[in-house]
Simulated scan of single mutants.
Amino acid sequence: MIRPNDRITTPQAAVILANILLGVGILTLPRYLADTMKTPDGWITVILGGILAFAFGLIMVRLSQRFPGKTFFEYSQIIAGKWMGKLLNLVLIVYFVLFAGFEVRDMSEIINYLFLEKTPKEFTILVFMCVAVYLTAGGINAIARLFEFILPISILIIITSYSLSLRLFELENLRPVLGMGIGPIFKGLPETWRAFAGIETMLFVTAYMSRPEKAGKALLAGVGISVFIYLVTLIVVLGGIPFEQVATLTWPAISIVRSYEITGFFLERYESLLIVIRLIQVFTGFVMYHYIAALGLSITLKKTYNRYIYIVLPVIFMIAMYPKSINQVKALGDVVSGIFLGIIALVAPILLIITVLRKKSYVQN
């Protein structure tokens, strides 16, 4: 059961979700969409992807609201039975451990490429893990308070950085709208889905809300913030750089910000701030996935939560170090995305249908 001091407010739930979603694709989404779609219509795909993410997120919220004070790891065993529920729990635990490993390796790749070329990846990964352990030990309330501090600063820096780059913006780069029809829009949806990986955390965040009946509003706010930032990113990048060039850039958002500098000001290159914000956002996702994986093991095995904070760390570290190249890191991301699609498209909807059809069986739970 949820302890009283573990409760979070509706704004905190929205902030947790927004932070996690923003950490996934803010630097790379423009490149993926430009390369996949071959048109400048990626911003339309982001809007459609946001609507779908909200729809599937709402399914998860409605499922969780039927079991107040219980996370997915608890009510899965009520719905599907003890052993099938434990199996579903194991699938989600593996998913979150894999995602945590991917996130922390992604952070180390950026740091090594842009800042600390000769620093071993093992060192940067271990540093992030040590900070994450300290934070997750405080529970979701401590995590929410940190996320509340991070999000406004992140949005301010992102919007300011993009605003300084608007001198490159040309509306013609975004035309013609739907010049190749709606085909590319749907072709780009799988890539957009990657940017909304993290929506599944509503299966757990809802249980901690002091007012779970408002989880839908938290979901709308969290998805809305991420859609807004992704939309601004796509428009600024594709409006400043033709989509053919965007498809060839590693981090298009950094490239567009790097084009502007204020000579003589105390900070002349604003892309450094954008990179730091991206790292912080990825870190928030890693912390949350680490927390949920440890929570899942403690609930499923009925053991103390704190011990699993440390037990999952070696596994996450091995997963993070397993890829030998940047291409293998991307392949790990593809695996995580595949599991994510299975969770939102199959697991949550099926469990919700079962609870609706057998509603009377769960009234006492």
Rank of each mutant, 00 (worst) to 15 (best):
I256M: 10
I229E: 08
F286V: 05
S165H: 05
V131C: 06
I78K: 08
M60W: 05
L174Y: 09
I256C: 07
L346R: 02
V227C: 06
P184I: 05
R194E: 04
L219R: 03
I158L: 15
Q12E: 14
W193F: 14
P68M: 08
K70D: 10
I159E: 09
I158T: 00
A142M: 11
V282F: 05
L171D: 00
F340S: 02
R307A: 02
S154W: 02
V237Q: 06
V227P: 03
F115Q: 05
G188K: 09
A197F: 00
I241G: 01
Y230N: 09
I292H: 01
I26W: 03
T36D: 04
T28S: 15
L27G: 01
V315N: 02
L352N: 00
A331D: 13
V329P: 04
L116Y: 13
A144W: 02
Q364D: 04
K70A: 10
R258S: 14
T263E: 14
I299D: 00
Y32D: 15
A55K: 04
S298V: 11
S361K: 15
G57I: 02
K187G: 14
Y308V: 00
S64M: 08
L313N: 06
N19S: 04
V336I: 15
V133A: 13
P323T: 11
S272M: 12
V223H: 06
L234M: 15
T250C: 01
L90P: 04
L341M: 15
